[in-house]
């Protein structure tokens, strides 16, 4: 099953042109990050840039690999329940892959320069929420995805700006930052719930061509 899911995910790379790459938010984090070294100090800019890199990769991945079925899938011998299961698996696979990317990146940062616990927890939590972004293709519910992407980006951006260059905080900043992170995460929960509702709807409706088909783009 994992092999099949990976195979289908890899197919996404072969049809990059087909993916919805017009969404400017895909490119926003990386372009913003690339400009930072010229705006703020090189060191801080580089940190922010590197911090935003995995998020950009996830956004690219989400947009290259929309989950859902095309018309041919509805003609293949599958029951509605099997189609639903397939869409759900595709979605979970993408979430897992994206979270692994974030986790590996954070591990690397942890080894190279160290991250204090509140920031690590915060980044992991944000990473998890971010990993759940997946492009619904031509289906409804795009607004929820885009709104979440923008929100997630700005919240992450605020976090990266508060990361000290040497990886440690002053003791006076420690509690203050932990509270800020907690508040930011709490603020994201309604958007995340809305996104999850949209995902559930996509999966339910995706089982039926009339309700949720992604037409192969010509």
């Amino acid at each position: 099953m994992l092999k099949q899911l990976m195979k289908e995910y890899m197919i996404g790379f072969k049809k990059v042109q087909q993916a919805d790459m017009k969404n400017p938010f895909v490119w926003f984090p990386i372009s913003y990050g690339a400009l930072l070294p010229f705006i703020i100090s090189k060191k801080e800019g580089a940190i922010v840039f590197i911090s935003l890199l995995p998020l950009t990769l996830i956004m690219l991945s989400a947009h290259m690999h929309p989950f859902g079925l095309n018309k041919m899938h509805y003609l293949c011998p599958m029951t509605a329940e099997e189609r639903k299961k397939k869409i759900r698996q595709e979605y979970y696979f993408r979430c897992g892959l994206h979270f692994t990317m974030i986790a590996v990146f954070l591990l690397a940062v942890l080894i190279i320069r160290g991250i204090q616990l509140p920031a690590l927890i915060y980044l992991l939590a944000i990473g998890f929420l971010y990993s759940c972004i997946s492009n619904p293709g031509e289906c409804k519910g795009k607004i929820a995805y885009y709104a979440f992407e923008i929100l997630a980006f700005f919240v992450t951006w605020i976090c990266t700006l508060t990361l000290p260059a040497d990886g440690t905080y002053d003791k006076s900043e420690y509690i203050y930052l932990a509270c800020v992170y907690a508040l930011l995460l709490l603020g994201m929960i309604p958007a995340f719930v809305s996104l999850m509702k949209s995902v559930r709807k996509e999966i339910e409706q995706g089982a039926f061509y009339e309700k949720g088909a992604i037409m192969t783009k010509s």
Partner: peptide, 17 residues
């Protein structure tokens, strides 16, 4: 579905493959 083969006006195959 096992009994039906079809050709439709829409492009059923994946364009990138």
């Amino acid at each position: 579905r096992k009994l039906l083969g079809c050709v439709l006006v829409d492009e059923l195959f994946d364009r990138g493959l």
